[in-house]
Computed example of a mutant assay.
Amino acid sequence: MFPELDSTWLICALVLFLGCTIQAAVGFGMAIVAAPVMVILKPEWVPYILAVSAFVVSLSGAWQQRAAIQWRAMTPAFITRLPGTIVGTWLLLIMSVSVLQITVAAMVLLTVVVSLWLKPFPANATNLGIAGFVSGITGTTTSIGGPPMALVMQHGSAVTARANLSVYFVYSCIISLIGYQLAGLLNSSTLLVSLTMVPIALLGFGAGKQLQRHVDNRFRPILLTVCSLSAGFALINTISEQF
């Protein structure tokens, strides 16, 4: 049965549009806007709708900037994402979610602060491999998978970073969606709602694409700001759940 497009759907669609706009403009960050609202209004939609929408936006971004993708350099990140996911799953079994969220958020914030004073480091195969592993852990445990990859790419060109982030998230979303399906979490009702959000995701990508040229001139500070907001939202959300 086709899902009802009520006021809750409209609000979720609006925040998803804004999140997809940010993701298309910067390369990541959709969950920063969409997740906090969706988890309150429709927690059963998270993270499935976010994964489908992120896949659509990332695939569109990867295709748009396909000439800038550094396939050879990104291969280690694709490989290490898998063991990172396994470690993240193991951590979920032995640690509380709140402890993991606080730890990951604090690590991201600390990394942002430290990176402001560190010398530029290259987004080479080794660093991207490490980032892919860490992203697998943080993405699995707290849904904050973007900052580890983005922080490694912060000193590169905006176009290359956005292209590499897009293709990485295409890969990550495929892994997540396969996992949800195998675990029986992605039922027909959730899938239908996710599909109704695809046009919204495409509209968000179109809007974000128009902002890319403005972002490119201030890419690093914007990227670090999005990383900080991502960690900050996770930290505030975790602390609020304790009260």
Rank of each mutant, 00 (worst) to 15 (best):
L93Q: 13
M95Q: 13
V97S: 15
V97N: 15
S98M: 11
S98T: 14
L100D: 09
L100V: 09
L100H: 08
Q101L: 07
I102C: 09
V104M: 05
V104T: 08
A106R: 02
V108W: 00
L109Y: 02
V112D: 07
V113F: 11
S115D: 07
S115E: 00
S115P: 00
S115G: 00
W117V: 14
W117E: 12
K119V: 07
K119Q: 13
K119R: 13
P122G: 01
P122L: 00
P122S: 01
A123E: 00
N124H: 04
N124Q: 05
A131P: 07
A131M: 06
G132K: 01
F133N: 00
V134F: 11
V134L: 13
S135Q: 03
G136D: 02
G136I: 01
G136H: 04
I137V: 13
I137A: 12
I137T: 10
T142F: 04
T142Q: 05
T142K: 05
P147C: 07
A150P: 05
L151Q: 06
G156R: 00
G156D: 06
S157H: 11
S157T: 15
T160P: 05
R162S: 00
A163E: 02
L165C: 10
L165Q: 08
L165W: 08
S166Q: 08
S166P: 08
F169A: 06
F169I: 03
I174T: 11
I175H: 12
L177P: 11
L177H: 10
G179E: 02
G179F: 01
Y180F: 15
Y180T: 05
L182S: 03
L182F: 04
A183Q: 13
L186G: 09
L186M: 13
L186F: 12
N187K: 08
S189C: 07
T190G: 09
L191A: 14
L192V: 13
V193C: 08
M197T: 04
V198S: 05
P199F: 03
P199Q: 02
I200V: 15
I200W: 08
L202G: 06
L202C: 07
A207W: 10
A207I: 10
Q210W: 15
Q210E: 14
Q210C: 14
L211K: 01
Q212Y: 14
Q212S: 14
H214R: 13
V215C: 03
N217Y: 09
